[in-house]
Design a protein around this nucleic acid. Structure first.
Length: 851
RNA sequence: GGGCGCGUAGCUCAGUGGGAGAGCGCUUGCUUCACACGCAAGAGGUCGCAGGUUCAAAACCUGCCGCGCCCACCA
């Protein structure tokens, strides 16, 4: 046995291999990309994980797919760059650090802004790298020399530059509008950060008495407390029932304010009573109605959603839910409550971070991105194919979203994030600048104060594909690697992130950010349920890597990532199965390497290849072509499946088993067989490497003198190895062998030795079997296929049958005559079916009359 | 309310006009000199239901039933 197989234990141990290569690859500089370059550039930027994050299985999926693409591109000779980095994750991080502080009994407001931000930075230094180490453990081939952080100096400059450019172009403005306020996190949110959820609420109908005492108007609401801030009643302009009341007034029952009745198209006369209470400061629809009809705004909540001094006195200081009950009691007392319907199902907005109910609220002046003028270009890029979505159906979702998109609130009342680059002088003039200005651009006042708010986290994320490459500077990296080749991400951030990258890329970097967008589903548990701590069904990728190896996790994820379905179920069983697959490859390599001497395997000359060898080359060629086609279309599951099938069911089950005969034979057959197997194995390792980098590298090293499979060449398909004859004959042989095995199993006949099997069968049956040999010979077009007559010394009435092809043993045995009869009748049926098909086709084409 | 996806073996899913498949699970036999993380054989399916198109439908069309998701200012 050659030297290098000595250290191959019968079981593949990922733990002994993976950590070594994970660092050796990085240390060897294999993942570093250069610009400028003569090669074709291929760039992916990592969707930056939050600094607060631990690797979860969703990351594992995304990184696996990206790494597969990048590794393949690198092997294809492209200048492959995968940019690593992290996101500062404004709210998420601030909340985590605040929680840490609270444990020490500190409130961030006592600490002050600067000290707090310092705390966040030191927290980031201490814990922020955790996820990076975990991504490294997965074998992700990122160029760590280019690691970025959304709050680093370069990216902060990019953020300010983007802000200023858009401000100067009129795409950023400041305005007082209703924002989605989270009373817990104390900040406004964009529409996309609000999650709507159906809840069982109530619909309460109550009466507003008309000012002139002539009656009352009934209105309904799901949020009774907001009636404290009502400034109008709205009805549809065409509604006969209320025509005479428009222009008159009702009286607020608690504080006696007079409230006008107005007409507006937004009111649906068919819903409820057809009259709507209008609370402009706490509802978007009402805000719009007020804007159109001139109703005043009455803000009744403070930042924590407690009733403020603007409402009737007796409710002051109550939280919004307490206020609801207090209002209800008061209405009952005044006999104004008409009815309560429960449950009433309706959608309520919740904060995407803390899940509190969102309160539409006026929180002073906020900054907005005007989407008119940005979204049209983003839409066009998808429609004309400059950005291609996979699966294609997401294009439509994206376009629809853009069509309905409203201006984007980018102010956040937080401390952790990019401070808005706007300064105000005492006269209220606004100066927007990339670097802190020394004086007001309007009145030259030196007394400037910067806007206290920070920008939405997604404002910096949207610049990620170009800011990481050096934008706004005109760098080599940017010129070489922009636009990126592809973006891989889950559909849950298609709107929050992907759409905005396309808008900002087109507007600021002058081109689409990436050519392809690969949208994958959410990883769910074995039964399609969302993974959650409370269900106890969370699969921790690190735990899985410890138990089964990163290759196993990667392969099982890739195999599950089918294009069709929405979400991706993952069971530990499937990871275990992938681990077994790695072990199978390992052992195939043990067998092959035990026989093969030398380094780079050379294919024996064509005339020295046996029929099963021609078949194996043909199957390998098919596998390579399938993998190529699948990866071109981002069909990772198909690629994984093709390799699994080839390696296990074809290479091992038939190829190795058949070749064992030749490996046991003398030279030069033995060496030919070993070289051919090694050649196929080595190429298949390269094919598999993008998905299972570790085990393939470890084995591949036995074929190489140094270097790394990660920078070896991609095995393009060899169409010249396609061999229809060999495939056809092997299929027949496989069928016959299977028939033999079936017979053996049915009759519980156990071969005395493994190969060749020696079976006692009736002599008359053996005679019937004879013609089959001729048939196989004809099919194969080979000589040397024959039945060996029974060796001497066997009991009378029995004979032993062994099938050989050429000089090599096949799993031998008895041919089941009945099975062959079935096969022939099946062939006849197939022939009939073929004839029928041809007849049908001809009929369809109009060549013959239909039956 | 609008849109999207799904329904195929016990489970999870491939399969888009002509042989109903894979992995896991299950049953049986096998420690066989690459691998028991293995080998071999096997059981198991009205392809959600109904109609239509076609010589031919799991696939295409229509309707229905069931499940899931996204978007949305009916209070």
């Amino acid at each position: 046995m050659p030297e290098r197989t000595r250290d191959l234990p019968p079981r593949y141990d990922p733990a002994a291999v993976e950590p070594h290569w994970a660092t050796a690859w990085v240390d060897g500089g294999y993942f570093h990309a250069q610009a400028p370059t003569d090669r074709e550039p291929y760039c992916i930027v990592i969707p930056p994980p939050n600094v607060t994050g631990r690797l979860h299985v969703g990351h594992a999926l995304g990184r696996t797919l990206e790494d597969a693409l990048i590794r393949r591109a690198r092997m294809q000779g492209k200048e492959a760059l995968w940019v690593p980095g992290m996101d500062h994750a404004g709210i998420a991080t601030q909340v985590v650090v605040e929680r840490e502080l609270r444990k020490e009994g500190i409130d961030r407001r006592e600490l002050g802004r600067e000290a707090f931000i310092e705390r966040v930075w030191s927290w980031k230094e201490q814990y922020g790298g955790e996820i990076v180490d975990q991504i490294k453990r997965m074998g992700a081939s990122l160029d760590w020399e280019r690691e970025r952080f959304t709050m680093d100096e370069g990216l902060s400059l990019a953020v300010r530059t983007a802000f200023v450019r858009w401000y100067e172009q009129g795409f950023i403005y400041r305005g007082e509008r209703l924002v989605n306020w989270c009373p817990t996190d104390q900040t406004g949110l964009s529409d996309s950060e609000v999650e709507h959820e159906e809840v069982d609420g109530e619909l309460v109908t109550f009466r507003y008495p008309l000012s002139d005492g002539s009656g009352s108007v009934e209105v309904a609401t799901t949020r009774l407390e907001t009636m404290l801030g009502d400034t109008g009643i709205a009805v549809h302009p065409d509604d006969e029932r209320y025509r005479d009341l428009v222009g008159t007034k009702v009286r607020h029952p608690f504080d006696g304010r007079e409230i006008p009745i107005v007409a507006d198209d937004a009111v649906d006369p068919a819903f409820g009573t057809g009259a709507v209470k209008v609370t402009p400061a706490h509802d978007q629809t009402d805000f719009d109605i007020a804007h159109r009809t001139g109703l005043p705004l009455l803000n009744i909540f403070d930042a924590e959603a407690r009733v403020n001094a603007n409402a009737a006195e007796e409710f002051y200081g109550l939280g919004r839910y307490d206020a609801r009950e207090a209002v209800r009691e008061e209405l009952v007392k005044l006999d104004l409550l008409v009815r309560e319907e429960r449950p009433f199902r309706h959608a309520v907005g919740h904060c995407y971070r803390c899940h509190s109910e969102i309160e539409p609220w006026i929180s002073g002046l906020q900054w907005f991105v005007k989407v008119e003028g940005l979204k049209e270009a983003a839409k066009r890029a998808a429609l004309d194919g400059r950005v291609r979505f996979t699966p294609e159906r997401w294009t439509r979702a994206y376009v629809t979203w853009l069509d309905n998109l409203r201006d984007w609130n980018i102010s956040r009342q937080l401390w952790w994030g990019h401070r808005i680059p706007a300064w105000y002088c005492p006269d209220g003039h606004v100066t927007v600048a990339i670097q802190p200005p020394t004086e007001c651009s309007t009145c030259a006042s030196a007394e400037l104060e910067q806007d206290p708010d920070v920008l939405d986290t997604w404002f910096s994320s949207q610049l990620w594909p170009f800011s990481t490459l050096g934008w706004p500077d005109d760098t080599e990296d940017l010129r070489t690697f922009y636009p990126n080749a592809v973006l891989v991400t889950g559909y849950e951030i298609l709107y929050l992130w992907v759409a905005r990258m396309i808008m900002s890329g087109l507007s600021l970097a002058g081109d689409v950010p990436f050519r392809d967008v690969v949208i994958h589903g959410l990883v769910r548990d074995a039964h399609g349920r969302k993974m959650s701590k409370s269900l106890g069904n969370v699969i921790d990728p690190i735990e899985m890597i410890d138990r089964y190896g990163a290759d196993a996790l990667r392969f099982s994820l890739a195999r599950a990532a089918t294009g069709g379905q929405q979400d991706i179920p993952l069971a530990e069983d499937s990871i275990e199965g992938a681990r077994n697959f790695a072990n199978k490859i390992w052992n195939a390599a043990r067998l092959v390497l035990g026989a093969f001497e030398g380094d780079l395997p050379q294919l024996p000359a064509a005339e020295r290849r046996t029929l099963p060898e021609r078949w194996l080359l043909s199957r390998h060629q098919v596998c390579a072509a399938e993998v190529d086609a699948a990866l071109d279309e981002y069909l990772f599951a198909d690629a994984a499946q093709a390799m699994f099938r080839f390696l296990w069911s074809e290479f091992c089950d038939w190829g190795l088993e058949i070749e064992k005969g030749r490996l046991d034979a003398g030279e030069p057959e033995r060496a030919d067989a070993a070289a051919l197997l090694a050649w196929v194995l080595e190429r298949t390792l390269r094919l598999l490497h993008p998905i299972m980098p570790f085990v393939t590298e470890e084995i591949w090293q036995r074929f190489a003198r140094g270097g790394s499979i990660s920078v070896s060449s991609w095995p393009d398909p060899h169409p010249e190895h396609a061999d229809a004859d060999a495939e056809r004959v092997m299929l027949a042989l496989q069928e016959i062998v299977t028939a033999v095995r079936r017979f053996r199993a049915r009759h519980r006949i156990t071969p005395s030795r493994r190969f060749p099997a020696r079976l006692g069968i009736p002599a008359d049956l053996a005679r019937e079997v004879e013609p089959l040999a001729e048939r196989i010979e004809r099919l194969a077009g080979l000589d040397g296929l024959a039945f060996v007559e029974p060796p001497a010394g066997k009991p009378a009435g029995e004979t032993t049958v062994t099938l050989t092809v050429g000089a090599m043993y096949l799993p031998p045995g008895l041919f089941d005559v009945e099975a062959e009869r079935v096969r022939l009748s099946k062939e006849r049926a197939e022939l009939d079916a073929d004839l029928a098909r041809v007849r049908g086709k001809l009929a369809n084409e109009g060549f013959v009359a239909k039956a």
